[in-house]
């Protein structure tokens, strides 16, 4: 199966080091924060793509095997996420979210990461609307009740929480820092 990615790179049939050489070229033209799917048949590419992502600062999301083809998902590093300044004041930490979930409160969680990030691990029951689509899709959310917005490190969710507040949503909480530190249950959708 394929996950939603912004770009796809065909590196099938190529041997080391070509998959990463091609990935390097392709990611140059990708917008920061966007996701690329790299299709490869080189069995070493899983370890290599992962190591390459770590050394270049991009985010390796995971790999899906589709027959002979390995589909690697990488999200291009984005400077936006390194900013420390958060503007939405209503925040909840991960322990707070965890105890609400454990208390079996029926709470709504909005995950604003890219679909491929969400697919490789999200909180069960979380709804996925990527930050970039929130402007068009916010009305899918219920105006009443708390909305807990989460991303990877708390920055995209901060922007999303601000946007929802502007749209008239009253009880929007930014969950910090985000999925990068989440120790609770997750599920995959691929």
């Amino acid at each position: 199966m394929s996950l939603v990615a912004n770009e796809t790179l065909d590196a099938k049939g190529l041997a080391c080091p070509m998959p990463i050489v091609k990935t390097k070229k392709a990611i140059k033209n990708l917008d920061p924060g966007h996701v690329i799917e790299v299709q490869a048949t080189d069995k070493g590419s899983t370890a290599d793509i992962k190591a390459w992502s770590e050394s270049t600062g991009h985010q390796y999301l995971g790999t899906v095997e589709d027959g002979e083809v390995l589909k690697h998902y990488i999200r291009k590093a984005s400077e936006e996420e390194t900013s420390e300044e958060k503007k939405h004041e209503n925040v909840l930490d991960l322990d707070g979210l965890r105890s609400k979930l454990d208390g079996e409160e029926n709470i709504s969680i909005l995950d604003v990461r890219e679909p491929a990030e969400y697919a490789f691990g999200h909180i069960p029951g979380a709804v996925n609307i990527p930050l970039g689509e929130l402007e068009e899709r916010f009305n899918e959310l219920n105006q009443d009740g708390d909305i807990h917005v989460i991303c990877r490190t708390g920055n995209r969710s901060d922007l999303a929480a601000q946007k929802l507040s502007e749209k008239g949503y009253k009880n929007v909480k930014n969950v910090v820092p985000g999925m990068s530190d989440w120790q609770g249950p997750t599920e995959k959708s691929n």
């Binding site: 080391c16 080091p17 990463i20 050489v21 990935t23 390097k24 390459w52 050394s55 270049t56």
Partner: peptide, 11 residues
């Protein structure tokens, strides 16, 4: 060349 290009592709 494999090691060299892999290193350069990793910046």
């Amino acid at each position: 060349l494999n090691v060299a290009t892999a290193a350069a592709a990793s910046d």
